[in-house]
């Protein structure tokens, strides 16, 4: 049951990456610890998943943190999904 309660998080970073994983910790600067994470690489050819595992993302580099709806996410067919890569943040 405990694993069901863990927040599954979708992060957009300043360099345009999309990282998905289980939130293990965060602080005031929005530094984030993710476990069992993977990167989703979007392109016009489809979506590729890259395994990352445990990672810490420095808050400076975080643009958006989204709470992933697991039911919704399971229903998405990533093999046919296409999208453009996000542009990096320009300050």
């Amino acid at each position: 049951m405990a694993t069901l309660m863990e927040p599954f998080i979708d992060i957009l970073t300043n360099d345009g990456r999309n990282i998905v994983g289980t939130l293990r910790g965060f602080d005031q600067l929005v530094n984030i610890i993710l476990e069992e994470s993977h990167e989703r690489v979007y392109s016009s050819d489809g979506v590729e998943r890259l395994h990352l595992g445990l990672c810490i993302i420095r808050g400076d580099n975080v643009a958006v943190v989204g709470l992933l709806d697991l039911d919704l996410d399971k229903r998405i067919d990533f093999s046919t999904l296409k999208g453009e890569p996000l542009k990096p943040v320009v300050h």
Binding site: N18, A63, G66, L68, L72, I76, K82, G83, E84, L86
Partner: peptide
């Protein structure tokens, strides 16, 4: 259509600096 990255996200946090 162009950016399907957040389709399974309903609630999100946006860092003020971006």
């Amino acid at each position: 259509e162009k950016f399907p990255h957040m389709i399974s996200v309903q609630n999100c946090f946006i860092r003020g600096s971006v």
